[in-house]
């Protein structure tokens, strides 16, 4: 095939960085995490106790699962405002199914309902052409209303006893939610970096027209992306309901914004197809450490919200600044 081996000697690969999609941004995040750990350990030695770290992992796991799906959606050029309310809807509906039909069917229904809602969002966006903002805002309202209708606004608590293991159990001293979350991160990262599906998601996020002209079935990929995200939201609802030992319509409130925040803090940009699951993992870890550390040194959660706001703005500003410079 190659007729002119004498030319283009510098077309050699040096793609280690791009292969792992781990840029200076990710490295900076690792330093920030180490710095936060040192500061909080110094301020309160309880910070680095095994019990505390296991607690952080358990609390953060659910955000991690949602943020994974949110990241895939954002990489494809969309974003999801409905996740929090959909968690509530899945929580109450799958709990009622679980009470009537048992643990296994209840758990499967949570994921199934999530997939269906995700696919619906995807169809609204890809086929009906609604902007993601509008489609998921509509879903936010509808899911919230449905959850309140189904539950009558009351908590549901009669789930089987064994169900509690998902939220509170341990395997080899590791909290089960953290293990589930870790598995989700690994699977999503594999999907996004190693498979054709992931490549197409990035392509659509970067330039939808070029993806279309490259023969990629953009609508199909988008619906798959939203379905995947929906399934993960279902999984998160399951873990959260188990942890709370009761289902409630507003259980996931705020999760949509927290998951977007973790994604953005990790360095994934809205609407440009830039970033990665690994970035989001680091973003979730930063948010978890920050929240826990501030709790340990008795900063009120009101101030914490302000701090998260400042961090989001700063993270995006720094990202834009770097882009303009390069």
């Amino acid at each position: 095939m190659s007729q002119n081996t004498d030319t283009a000697p510098d077309a050699s690969p040096n793609g280690i960085m791009s292969k792992f999609r781990f840029d200076m941004n990710g490295l900076g995040m690792v330093f920030i995490i180490i710095a936060l750990c040192i500061v909080f350990s110094w301020l309160n030695p309880n910070f680095y106790s095994g019990t505390n770290l296991r607690n952080v992992a358990r609390q953060t796991a659910i955000l991690g699962i949602v943020a994974c799906g949110q990241t895939v959606v954002i990489l494809s050029g969309g974003f999801d405002l409905s996740a929090g309310m959909v968690i509530g809807l899945i929580s109450v509906s799958s709990s009622l199914i679980m009470i009537d039909h048992g643990l296994v069917i209840g758990c499967l229904s949570a994921i199934g309902i999530g997939l269906a809602i995700g696919a619906f969002n995807g169809i609204m966006i890809a086929k009906a052409g609604l902007p993601a903002f509008i489609a998921t805002l509509a879903m936010y309202s509808a899911a919230r209303g449905l959850a309140l209708i189904i539950s009558g606004g009351l908590p549901i608590t009669d789930m089987p006893f064994e169900f509690g293991w998902i939220g509170a159990g341990q395997i080899l001293t590791m909290p089960v939610p953290a293990l589930i979350s870790l598995l989700v991160f690994l699977l999503c990262s594999f999907l996004m970096v190693k498979t054709r599906f992931g490549r197409h998601v990035y392509a659509i996020g970067g330039n939808q027209d070029s993806a279309l002209f490259s023969g990629i079935n953009v609508d199909r990929v988008k619906i798959l992306v939203w379905s995947l995200h929906g399934g993960l939201v279902g999984l998160a609802a399951l873990v959260l309901t188990s942890r709370a030992v009761s289902a409630h319509a507003t259980l996931g409130e705020g999760m949509e914004l927290e998951s977007i925040a973790a994604t953005v803090i990790g360095g994934t940009a809205l609407g440009r197809g830039r970033g990665s699951i690994l970035n989001t993992f680091l973003g979730v870890v930063v948010m978890a450490i920050l929240t826990n550390g501030l709790n340990l040194i008795n900063v009120s959660s009101y101030y914490q919200m302000v701090a998260i706001g400042i961090i989001i703005a700063t993270a995006v500003y720094v990202d834009q600044f770097k882009r303009v410079k390069s």
Binding site: M1, S2, Q3, N4, T5, T7, A8, D10, A11, S12, P13, N14, G15, M17, S18, K19
Partner: peptide, 15 residues
């Protein structure tokens, strides 16, 4: 890399 060499296109890195 083979393709770019055939067309004599120089890029710093294909990555």
């Amino acid at each position: 890399i083979e393709l770019l060499q055939r067309l004599k296109i120089n890029v710093k890195s294909v990555r």
